[in-house]
């Protein structure tokens, strides 16, 4: 059960950490640690306003998005314990299920028939598509180093501690961090705070969602923080540490993730849109580097 708890913890804390870091670094008082949860609660209590243009897809999409992200959370292992679901090559399933959520997010955005949401959908689809190989390259490299074929076995093989693996794991964590930024559309890919819809990606896609639907999408996005930071934790933390130490380290990584995103958002501007390709492709390039590292350790 630990793994899923870790994901949930991530979902609860990371957005808070981000918000707090940002307000502190800006010298503002800012919202509280759990403001995002209050927001979600508020949304869940609301009724629904939808566009005349939209139809069934926009009604169904938030549930699909949430369901698939939830399901993907079940795959996350921790501390040598498999997630709720674990089998050979489960990472393929994991990636595809995230793809499903993205797919529905995009068509939900297109359902409203708005030109702005169209833009967002187009960009989301493009970035998601570009991020996909990076993930697979990374997992492939890790699988190659460890010789294992599922999340849990890859991450729990860290007990034969060696420098090569560890360096690869660190790079892997870095890649996962970046993929998380892309998936959740944070700076430098996208700036969720801006009010210029033209430059937004994720936030512009939910313009026509309201109430419970919006809440579900928000929850899914929080969960993704948890999922990716748990993955980062899994890859960095050696599996031969004591369990309490591992848990502590994992929470440390969650906190670090939140703070890092917050700092990034405070001190970095968002990319120009067409720079994003370059940015995402860089992730793939680093993943390729990990792969070469893996090949070198193999020799």
């Amino acid at each position: 059960m630990y793994p899923i708890l870790l994901v949930i913890a991530g979902a609860i804390f990371i957005p808070g950490f981000i918000a707090r870091t940002r307000s502190i670094s800006a010298g503002r008082k800012g919202p509280g640690m759990f403001q995002h949860l209050y927001n979600v609660r508020l949304l869940l209590r609301k009724g629904n306003v939808f566009s005349n243009t939209s139809g069934a897809v926009q009604q169904v999409a938030p549930s699909v998005v949430l369901a698939s992200v939830l399901l993907s959370a079940f795959f996350i292992p921790f501390a040598g314990k498999p997630g709720l679901l674990s089998f050979s090559y489960d990472f393929v399933f994991f990636a595809c299920i995230l793809g499903l959520s993205r797919f529905w997010m995009i068509i939900a955005a297109l359902d409203a028939g708005s030109s702005f949401e169209g833009m967002g959908a187009s960009r989301e689809a493009l970035y998601g598509m570009l991020a996909e190989p990076a993930f697979f390259l990374l997992v492939g490299a890790l699988a190659l180093i460890t010789g294992h074929d599922s999340f849990v076995s890859i991450f729990s093989s860290g007990d034969t501690f060696n420098l090569g693996y560890y360096f690869a794991a660190l790079l892997g964590a870095y890649i996962l961090f970046n993929i998380m930024l892309v998936e959740n559309s944070r700076i430098p890919v996208d700036d969720p705070r801006t009010h210029l819809e033209l430059t937004m990606i994720h936030e512009v896609m939910v313009l026509d969602l309201s109430g419970i639907d919006l809440a579900m999408v928000q929850i899914a996005s929080f969960l993704k923080y948890g999922i990716f930071s748990s993955l980062m934790a899994g890859s960095i933390i050696p599996a031969n540490w004591q369990l309490p130490v591992q848990i502590a380290a994992a929470f440390g990584i969650l906190a670090f993730t939140g703070i890092a995103v917050g700092i990034l958002e405070s001190f970095k501007a968002r990319n120009r849109l067409n720079k994003n390709f370059q940015y995402i492709l860089t992730i793939s390039a680093i993943a390729l580097l990990v792969l070469i590292l893996a090949l070198l350790t193999l020799q």
Binding site: K46, G47, N48, S51, N52, A112, G113, F116, L207, I212
Partner: peptide, 15 residues
Amino acid sequence: LLSGRSIKSGPTWGC
């Protein structure tokens, strides 16, 4: 959750 709550529709948000 939605049952009994207000469900309204309007034009797509045009920013």
